[in-house]
Write a protein that binds this DNA or RNA. Sequence first.
DNA 1: CGCCTATTTAGGCAATAAGCTAATTATCTA
DNA 2: TAGATAATTAGCTTATTGCCTAAATAGGCG
Lengths: 125, 125
Amino acid sequence: MIEDNNSDSETSAGANGAIQRVFEALSSQPRRKILAYLAHSSLTAGEIAARFDMSKPSISQHLSILETAGLIAKERQGQFIHYSLVQNNLVNTLNGFVQDVCPVSRPIKRESKELGRGGQHKDRT
Amino acid sequence: MIEDNNSDSETSAGANGAIQRVFEALSSQPRRKILAYLAHSSLTAGEIAARFDMSKPSISQHLSILETAGLIAKERQGQFIHYSLVQNNLVNTLNGFVQDVCPVSRPIKRESKELGRGGQHKDRT
DNA sequence: CGCCTATTTAGGCAATAAGCTAATTATCTA
DNA sequence: TAGATAATTAGCTTATTGCCTAAATAGGCG
C-alpha cells in the first residue's frame, strides 16, 4: 500500500478514499455492467444475478463494492432487496476527475469538438 | 442462473478490452496522479519518478500501463523519454462510459451532443 | 411454528497486481 | 572506447481480488 503524501490532485483527504473507491469499483467489467443495468431500471439482487453467469454471492460482493463506493443504493422490500443507481456520485466523481486532468485551459467542451472531428480514438464509436 | 456472454454495454469486442484497460489504469492513485501531472505539462520519466516516493522501475511500470491504455504517449529525445497526456482517449472513454450508464443529463450532457456518437446504448430510462 | 425463497456472510483457493532490487539497453560525452 | 546517466526489463515477494461452495440471516406464508 502506498503512503501517498501528496494526496491526489483533489484536496480533502476524505475525498481521496471516496475517489479511490469509485475508480476501483469501476475497474471491473461485471461492476460496470451492473451499473449499466441499473441505469435502465432498479433491480433486485436476484434479477441482477440472473443476468450474469456468476454465483449470487459473487454478485452480492460486487453490489457491496458498488454500494460502498456510493454508486448504487439498496432498499429492502420484503424479502427482496432492490438496488438502484445513485447517479450523482458517479457523474460527479468522473466529471471531477476529468476536470482535474483537463484543466481550465482545455475545457471539456472543447474536447468534444475535437473529438467530433474524430481524432484518434479506439474502436469505441 | 442464466448465461450471459460477456458483452459489456457496448459490444464491440475490441472496445471492451480498451475500456477495461482504461478503467484499470485509472484505478490506481499513483497512475491518476501521473495523469494529473502530465495534464499540466509533459515530463520525462525521471521527472515523474522524482515526484513520487517510489522506485523508478515501479513508475516505469505505471507509465507502461497508462501508455497501453492509450492515456499517455512517449517520445524519446536523446537519453530522455518524454511522456505526455493523450487527452482524447481519456475523455472519450470516460465520457462514453458515462453516456452508457447515465441517461442524458448532468453537466456532461454537452459532450453527448457534440460527440453525437451513434448510440449503441441500451436504453434511457 | 416449520419451511421456502432471497440475499448475505464465511472461509478457501488461484490468479493478479504492486512494490522492490539487480541487471540490461540506449544515448550522450569525454 | 570507456564511463556516466536515463529508463526499462527481469525476477521475486507479498497483498489483494475474484470467484466458488457451504452456511447463516431475514422475511413471507402455509
